[in-house]
Structure formats: structure tokens, C-alpha cells
Nucleic acid binder design. Sequence first.
RNA 1: GUGAGUGUAGCUCAAGGGCAGAGCACUGGACUGUGGCUCCAGGGGUUGGGGGUUCGAAACCCCUCACUCACCCCA
Length: 428
Amino acid sequence: MKYQAPRGVKDLLPPESELFRLLEDEVREVFGRSGFREIRLPLFESADLFARSIGESTDIVEKEMYLFSGKGGESLALRPEGTASLIRAAIEHRLAEPGRLERLFYQGPMFRHERPQAGRLRQFHQAGAEILGSSDPDDDVDLIATVSRHAGISRVPASRLLINSMGCPECRPGYREILVDYLEKNHDLLCETCRRRTKTNPLRVLDCKIPSCQPVLESAPHLVEFLCPASRSHFDRVCRGLEGEGISFTVSHRLVRGLDYYTETAFEWVSDALGAQSTWAAGGRYNGLVRHLGGGDVPGVGLAIGIERLFLLRELAGTLPQKAGAAVHLAVHPLEEAARPYAHRILASLRDNGISAVGIFGQTRLKKAFLQAEREGALFIGLLGGDELSTGTITIKHLATGIQKSLPTFPPEYLSKALREPWTPDPV
RNA sequence: GUGAGUGUAGCUCAAGGGCAGAGCACUGGACUGUGGCUCCAGGGGUUGGGGGUUCGAAACCCCUCACUCACCCCA
């Protein structure tokens, strides 16, 4: 085979492509019903934007970005995630302004140069929703509810919601010191990576999954116990709000975001049914990000859903959205040369009237035409021969029931209407 | 980037040093205006690629590529 798709990217063929589209549509609808409006963002940006927003020392920026140069030599990158672009666009077009509240969502492919694995691709899809301009805990609750209720939990097997608080610039530095103290005391019990991170990014140490580190990390001081009154209150109100909504969650003290402009609430939806990549949606509050990217003092909270992961989970649970109706309504088959122009006219008029129709032209045997119609998912087959030509009719057979009728092809609205109505035998 | 497992027809898989096969799918026929069934026939392969061992390699050895899963990281 001379050419094949690059590593880690997938061709999506029918029927999966159709189901994938339905799932994307459903997510779009869910966000739309919660008041989010779609923003269409470019697939590449200045590489520097991602370095600044995601963080210089993250794996994504250090080794996973697809980098390339523009003609002028500027450094560009395929987007590894959506939030950075969205914030950039919001600042650029004055949607992120102090005092203004904006709900936006995006959907589309993201690119990370990682080793492919179950639920992990080099080109994958995310749908994300962001609320800019609100620091109200009820907006955290509402955002979480949107996913938990509607995209969600009930349709995803073995799914759990984890939440935690990252604190704020007032209280996190204090906690960080306490944590570093603790980690240094237990230095000898930690793995190589954790020792390094104790110095570079102590909060991330809590994320370590190496078994030998677990006892130390489990008994590490919890950030929520060191929150300042304001952060404490924000977190309590989010938790109470979720309880009030009847959304169950677990406070996970080990759930962290490594970067400073992530503040207050962090949350993740995980499922054990997914393999090693257990997170299928994640989000949090980022009250410092807009300012960090050169905008005003505008708080924000957002999340992203991994569409492939959601797809896998819902496929497993049998809860993918169902395809409505047949792929093709009517397959038209001319039985002789003279009927071909007639067939084209009928196809055109059906399509004009909103009916999906295909022509079956290449088959010499009627049996083959039937088989082809079925293969294309047609509901009806329409036959055109000498009789039909001379009387201006078409012989239509409902493939599932075998019920057959002869219908006039003029006016075209009549035929379209008949094809949409329940197909029962004519009274004798 | 590291590790393990797997690569044979379009798909699912046999053959474990001695003729590369089956089922499904595909094409044609039985069957020229009425399908799904059945029967018959046919096309399809440098056994992922390269090198080596051997009289002989799909099989054994080395290299390489790809896929899968895991580490790592994350959606």
C-alpha cells in the first residue's frame, strides 16, 4: 500500500461518520440550549499564544505541538486545545470586557503529537463551552449541570464527576509552601519525577499515578483546608449548588491544574470504562487567564468534552444518538434507455421537494437494481419502463413491506407527498 | 520519548519448515418488468517491507514500518 493515513489520525467512514456527526450535533444542541453561541476559530495560531496560555513547561507545549513557519518566518502551531484561541478571539473582538458576560462554545479538531492509544489520537475533536465575565459560583454550577444533565452522566457508563478547588492568588501561595514542606519531608519516598516537580510545579506532584508515591500523596495536606475565606465560600457554594441540583460528585483533593491563572473550581468527568484515558470531559475556572493574555480583568469558567471519548463511552453503553429515517428515500431505476431522461426529471423534482433520491443506472438486471437500492439504504424503489413512460406514472415499491403502487409523476408535489405518507395498500 | 503484544484476500481468521486456505464480502451465471433465499462458477495475495539461515521460510533469526495496548501526558 503506497499511501496510508499518518500515524494517529483516522478516516471516519460511514456509518460511524454519520453517528459521529449526530453526536456533535447533540452536543451543539445541548450547549445551545444553555445559551452558548458558537464561535468558529482558526485551526492554527501563533505558537506563542499556546505557550503563554497552556504554560511553557507543560508537555503539550514542550513536545506535543505541531509547529510550522509562515512565509514571513512567524512561528505557528496547529491548535492543541480550544480555550487559548477562544480567549484570544474574545479579547481581539472585544467580547471579553469587564462587566460584560458572554457565553461561547466551539467545536472541532485539535492536534497533539502524542503516542496514539485507546481514546488518544493525534487529531481529535473537542467541544468546549466558556463563560466569560462571571465570577459567580452559580455559573460554575450551571456549566457543570449542562454537561452532567444533558451530555451526560446517565448516558455514559461508570461515569463520575470529580471536583476540587485551586484556590486563588491570595491563598494558593500559602498552601504551596505547606505542600512543598510536606513533600520535602517525604522526599525519600517519592519517585524521580515527583522530586523534580516538588521544585518546578509542586501542585502537579499530587497528580502522580506511580503506586509507590500514593501513600505519601494520599495523606498530603489538602488545598481546600487552606483556602482563604473568599475561595472557601466560592467552593462551598459550588458544592451546595450541585447538591441542590441533585448532581452527585466527589471532592478529589488530588485533582489539580498546574498553572497560576487557573483558580477556584476544577472539575473532571471520568469513566473507568474508557481504558487508561479515563477523563472524557474536564474544565475549571480561570480568573487570571484573560489578563494573562493581554485582556482586561475578566474572570472565566469553561470546560471541554473529548468527543471521541464520549463517542466510545456512549457506543459501549448503546446510548449514541439514533439516526432518523432512511439514508435514501427513493431509488429510481429506468428499465430501458428511453426512460433515462424521465428518471432524471423525476430525481430533480423529488430533490426539489426535499426528498432524497438516487438513480440506479448501471444495472442491467432488475435483481441487481433492488440489491443496489437496499445497499444504499433506500426506503422505496421506483421503476420506470415503457408502461410508466406512456402513462406518466412511476411504479413504486416499499422495500420493507413489498407494498407496490402506481403513482402519477405530475404534479411533482403529489408524488413527494405520497412518499411521505404512511405506505398502506390501496383499498380494493 | 519508553515498553509489550500483533501484522496472512476487502473483513474475520486457519495453515507452526514441504502446493497459501476457509467463512463472509465482491463479480458473473442459473434468473431479460419485481429484491432478500438457494445453487454453480469466478476474480482476487510479492503472507506489512528489507535482509539472513535453509535444498526449501507465512513460519526460525536480524533490521525496519504499521497497528493495538500500557507508561507518560491529557479531552
